[in-house]
């Protein structure tokens, strides 16, 4: 699903570029959809544990201590995600009540806002799941992918 979204966004940007008359609201919708892809991706990264972080000190610790440091770190992430989810919902609500619209066609913005918000809500679930698994001794945090060993992860060379 994440992949599909990314492709859709690439396509919409191409469309914007390809035709000299811009597609109405493509600007607003493409940036909002990227926002949605990002929050849903947040849920995925919360589960994999591949956020950018300082691994140096954790890797110097004995495995047991490292496990509890990892659990602590992800509890902090969970706390932040819960705060974000709570406050962001208020933002979605005001968007709905004020009837904010897109700039060209004044289409309502709130459904996409809700999609963005639901990604954050999903991140609460995945982050919690990761904490429980780590506390029980299954899995750990991945060493972070810097700008990307994404290349490496997907590579089949």
């Amino acid at each position: 699903m994440l992949a599909a979204l990314t492709v859709v966004i690439v396509a919409s940007a191409i469309g914007r570029y390809g035709f000299s008359t811009p597609i109405p609201d493509a600007f607003d919708y493409s940036r909002l959809l990227i926002g949605a892809a990002i929050t849903w991706g947040l849920a995925s990264v919360g589960f994999r544990g591949s956020h950018i972080k300082v691994d140096l000190f954790a890797l110097m610790m004995p495995p047991r201590a490292r496990r509890w440091v990892d659990v602590f770190a992800w509890c902090v992430l969970l706390f932040f995600t819960v705060l974000l989810c709570w406050k962001m919902f208020g933002r979605v609500e005001t968007t709905m009540m004020n009837g904010e619209g897109t700039s060209d066609l004044r289409m309502p913005v709130w459904p996409v806002m809700l999609l963005i918000w639901s990604g954050v809500a999903a991140a609460i679930l995945t982050t919690t799941a990761k904490i429980v698994l780590m506390a029980m001794g299954y899995g750990s945090l991945e060493e972070h992918e810097s700008i990307d060993d994404a290349a490496e992860g997907a590579s089949h060379e």
């Binding site: 994440l2 992949a3 599909a4 979204l5 990314t6 492709v7 892809a37 990002i38 991706g41 947040l42 995925s44 990264v45 994999r48 591949s50 956020h51 950018i52 972070h144 992918e145 700008i147 990307d148 994404a150 290349a151 992860g153 997907a154």
Partner: peptide, 17 residues
């Protein structure tokens, strides 16, 4: 293609964070 998109998105997310 799907794997590439997913990986690219994950990497983007860590930058956006």
């Amino acid at each position: 293609i799907i794997a590439s998109c997913t990986e690219a998105l994950r990497t983007s997310v860590s930058i956006y964070t």
